[in-house]
């Protein structure tokens, strides 16, 4: 592979853009295909399948074999709330391969001392959402308990088709949240997508245990449902 091609592949991934590297096994010839270019490519159907599933694959064309290195954006976890649960969740999610961002306008919570080395935005969601550019490869966990912070993020996450949307709080808290968001114009269908109470029911008590239950739920949705990738393709 030419270094320039490898660098383009890396740049596309860093920009969270899907791309497929096509390698002709026999000749060693390679090309990079974007979702926009795929429909006019000779391998259009197989490329579409690659973008949809996110899976790399060897394709036998009869007279030659080509390998598709499929690259879709790495999963990202955006959390509102620089809280105790987040402190436990960040290293776990990072280790599982997620890019993590924390949003919390409360500067007493959102400090580098509490979250060393983390992409931390001490801003209101409304301010940072344009640059965060939530997408179908993003999971959102709302953990502040504060509607002023969580609601805007949840509405945006649902509108942008985030593959997972979860919110901390009891069933009663969630019922009032649903009514508030419905009042903002969020559809009932979208509201039904919110995982609440957040996390798998494993009887979690401590912040670290709750973090495990949240991350397990996020991974379950990521791996079992192709929906996120289909929307992005």
């Amino acid at each position: 592979m030419e270094l320039a091609l490898l660098e383009r592949l890396n740049a596309e991934r860093a920009a969270r853009r899907a791309t497929i590297l096509v390698t002709e096994i026999g000749s060693g010839r390679q090309r990079l295909v974007t979702p926009a270019e795929a429909p006019s490519d000779p391998l259009a159907e197989r490329l579409a399948e690659g973008f949809r599933t996110g899976r790399s694959a060897l394709v036998d064309l009869g007279n030659e074999r080509v390998f598709l290195t499929v690259q879709v954006p790495s999963p990202r976890l955006v959390i509102t709330g620089a809280v105790h649960i987040s402190q436990a969740l960040v290293p776990m999610a990072t280790g599982a391969g997620f890019d993590v961002t924390i949003v919390d306008p409360r500067t007493a919570f959102a400090t580098p001392e509490r979250f060393p080395g983390v992409d931390l935005r001490a801003e209101w969601p409304e301010v940072v959402l344009p640059e965060l550019a939530l997408d179908p490869f993003t999971a959102v966990a709302a953990l502040t308990h504060d509607p002023k912070i969580d609601d805007g993020m949840l509405a945006e996450a649902l509108a942008r088709g985030c593959f997972y949307v979860g919110a901390l709080g009891s069933r009663r808290t969630h019922a009032t949240r649903v009514e508030r968001l419905a009042g903002l114009g969020v559809s009932r269908e979208d509201l039904a997508r919110i995982h609440a109470p957040i996390g798998l029911d494993i009887g979690a008590v401590s912040p670290a245990e709750i973090a495990v239950s949240i991350l397990a739920e996020v991974i379950g949705v990521l791996r079992r449902r192709p929906a996120a990738r289909e929307q992005a393709a």
């Binding site: 270094l3 490898l6 660098e7 991934r13 290195t69 790495s74 391969g97």
Partner: peptide, 25 residues
């Protein structure tokens, strides 16, 4: 992570090292 591997391959090459990339196909 997978992306770190591809970044490393590019970085090593830029430093002038000989580099090979192996992929499970």
């Amino acid at each position: 992570r997978e992306e770190d591997v591809l970044e490393a391959a590019a970085g090593w090459r830029r430093e002038g090292r000989g580099v090979a990339l192996a992929t499970v196909v």
